[in-house]
Simulated assay, not measured.
Amino acid sequence: MYKLVVLFLFCGLGLSAQELNCSVIINAEQTGQSNLQVFRTLKTELTEFMNNTTWTNLNFKQQERIDCSLVILVSNIDSDSFTASIQVQSSRPVYNSTYSTPIFNFNDKQFSFRYTEFQPLNYNPNTFDSNLISVLAFYAYTIIGLDAGSYELNGGEPYFEEAKQIVNTAQQQVSDGWSAQSGTQSRFRLNQDLLSPNFREFSDVLYAYHRNGLDYMADNPREAKQGIAVSLELFNQMYLNRPNNFLSRVFFDTKADEIAKMFSSGPQVNISNLVSMLNKVAPTKSSSWQQIKL
């Protein structure tokens, strides 16, 4: 089951549609060649690739697509070789509200690719066609997996497995970002940790924070906030198992501002231990935690 809140919408009542509603921004100012036509073509082709590829066998209506964005900062171009970074973001609606909550916010600095204007971009899960296609497909499945996991406990695992297949295929061709030697904040590490039994608490938090917390905020904000506070306590166990782990950083890079705003206004709940725990597990976000009123 997927997206329990809107499950009835996925019963095959309409034609199959793609999963993502992705916007793409190409920033090439650092190259001094930002007016090149190739960047405009690249933006168009990447947008079509992300939004028109069928990533799963689920049926999505247009309004049910996952909102996400890619911001690609190109720092150098040499013929058909591009050096860049890519900021990946996604969000999902909160039940019975007009609010969209951020699910993923990740800056990948290990992103280089070859691209010739108008080259076809097609994803084949069984082959490595280019680093550009592999990176985009990897993030498509990661976005879908995190979105699914926010609706159903461990709901993202099949999509993280798809992303793992991309990792395994890509690392046979290139290493930057795809291998264990790529550092502690790579695509390899992100996927490995999302599937690791050592970080099962992350799946618990992802689900409980959204389904047992935010999705009930409109009905009972006090209980919803208390449920979110309880879910965040699970990061303490992750910290005890591995301090400063990557998934905690990814989560709080995405959620720190939301958490601070949530607990600095509205009905007061018992969070006597929350701030000290947050400062311990996510010390780089201390300026956000200072906003929380005890």
Results as ranks from 00 to 15, higher is better:
2 Y>F: 13
2 Y>V: 06
4 L>C: 07
5 V>N: 09
8 F>L: 12
10 F>L: 04
11 C>Y: 06
16 S>Q: 15
19 E>F: 02
22 C>F: 07
23 S>E: 10
27 N>L: 10
31 T>A: 11
33 Q>K: 15
36 L>G: 07
44 T>L: 14
44 T>F: 11
48 E>W: 00
50 M>N: 00
51 N>K: 01
52 N>A: 07
53 T>G: 08
56 T>W: 03
56 T>A: 05
60 F>Q: 00
60 F>R: 10
63 Q>S: 06
82 F>G: 00
83 T>K: 08
84 A>N: 04
86 I>P: 04
92 R>T: 14
93 P>W: 13
94 V>I: 15
94 V>Q: 09
96 N>T: 09
100 S>D: 13
100 S>I: 08
105 N>P: 03
105 N>R: 10
106 F>D: 12
106 F>W: 10
107 N>G: 05
107 N>R: 11
115 Y>V: 02
116 T>C: 04
119 Q>R: 02
119 Q>L: 10
120 P>D: 12
122 N>E: 08
124 N>H: 13
127 T>Q: 14
131 N>G: 13
132 L>T: 04
133 I>M: 04
134 S>H: 08
134 S>W: 05
136 L>K: 04
141 Y>T: 07
143 I>N: 04
145 G>S: 10
146 L>M: 14
150 S>I: 02
150 S>D: 01
152 E>G: 10
153 L>C: 05
153 L>P: 06
159 Y>R: 10
162 E>T: 03
165 Q>Y: 08
167 V>D: 03
170 A>H: 01
173 Q>F: 11
185 Q>F: 14
189 R>N: 12
189 R>E: 15
191 N>Q: 15
197 P>V: 12
199 F>Y: 15
204 D>R: 11
205 V>E: 08
208 A>Y: 00
209 Y>N: 03
211 R>K: 13
211 R>T: 09
217 M>V: 12
219 D>T: 14
225 K>L: 02
228 I>W: 01
233 E>D: 12
234 L>V: 01
235 F>T: 05
235 F>M: 11
236 N>A: 13
236 N>S: 11
238 M>K: 08
240 L>E: 15
248 S>E: 13
254 T>K: 00
254 T>H: 01
258 E>N: 04
260 A>R: 01
263 F>Y: 14
265 S>G: 07
266 G>E: 05
268 Q>I: 13
275 V>F: 06
278 L>F: 07
280 K>S: 07
284 T>H: 13
286 S>G: 02
286 S>Q: 13
286 S>A: 15
290 Q>T: 04
